[in-house]
């Protein structure tokens, strides 16, 4: 137990970096994901093809490979803003197709009858989207989006293997120093992750229940 308390500053620093990665990559991935999702349902076929290809390729690439590219190969191209930034870029790119898929499934999940009804009472395209389809789609999208965020939280741990000092990096360093207290150290690190993921999961579950009642 003392191994945990002695190294608490290290854990807190790691936790801060994990939260930082989560925040930057979360915002970045949402932005890119929104653009990709919009391209995917747009009437312009070349955008649709591009968005589909992007989603399929990035989604099927292992995160380790993406971060390897960012940490080892981007510096070779004379692009090295620091390992934290590189890992944030990698996580952003890796997470964006998952956001796009969640958004797209939300829009597709709204029953066609809703749009048909809106159209038949004379609403225009814009009105149909803003008053009928989007309010329902956003509600349905929130739980899968939170699940993407939870996955992102867990994925930030991979950045720890690529020179970023976040929670997993802290765990590696401290377990190296204190080989006698591996179990408490790793349980403490796991607790830090659970502090983020379990509340997010609970929120997602609650919203899901609310949406289910509404439908």
């Amino acid at each position: 137990m003392d191994a945990v308390i002695d190294n608490l500053p290290l854990f807190l620093e790691g936790f801060r970096n994990t939260l930082g990665l989560l925040l930057i990559a979360g915002v970045g991935a949402s932005t890119i994901g929104l653009v990709v999702a919009a391209m995917r349902i747009s009437p312009i076929s070349s955008f649709r093809v591009f968005a589909t290809a992007y989603t399929e390729l990035v989604r099927n690439t292992p995160l380790t490979l993406v971060l390897f590219f960012c940490a080892y190969l981007l510096p070779l191209l004379e692009f090295s803003p620091g390992y934290f930034q590189l890992a944030a870029i990698g996580l952003t790119v890796y997470t964006s197709p998952f956001v796009a898929e969640a958004l797209r499934s939300g829009v597709n999940g709204v029953h066609v009858g809703q749009a048909e009804a809106a159209r038949s009472v004379g609403l225009t395209f814009g009105q149909t989207l803003t008053f009928v389809v989007m309010p329902q789609a956003i509600r349905m999208v929130v739980p899968p989006l939170i699940n993407v965020l939870i996955a992102l939280t867990k994925n930030t741990s991979v950045a720890g293997a690529f020179f970023v000092f976040e929670l997993f990096g802290a765990a590696r360093k401290v377990t190296n120093d204190r080989g006698d207290a591996v179990i408490p150290i790793l349980l403490a690190v796991a607790a830090f992750y659970l502090v983020i993921t379990i509340p997010l999961g609970l929120i997602a579950g609650r919203i899901e229940k609310k949406v289910a009642v509404l439908r």
């Binding site: 867990k154 741990s157 720890g160 293997a161 997993f168 765990a171 790793l186 992750y193 999961g201």
Partner: peptide, 11 residues
């Protein structure tokens, strides 16, 4: 479910 796989591997 809430723990990173990587941490579990190290553990």
């Amino acid at each position: 479910r809430g723990m990173p796989v990587l941490l579990m591997m190290l553990f």
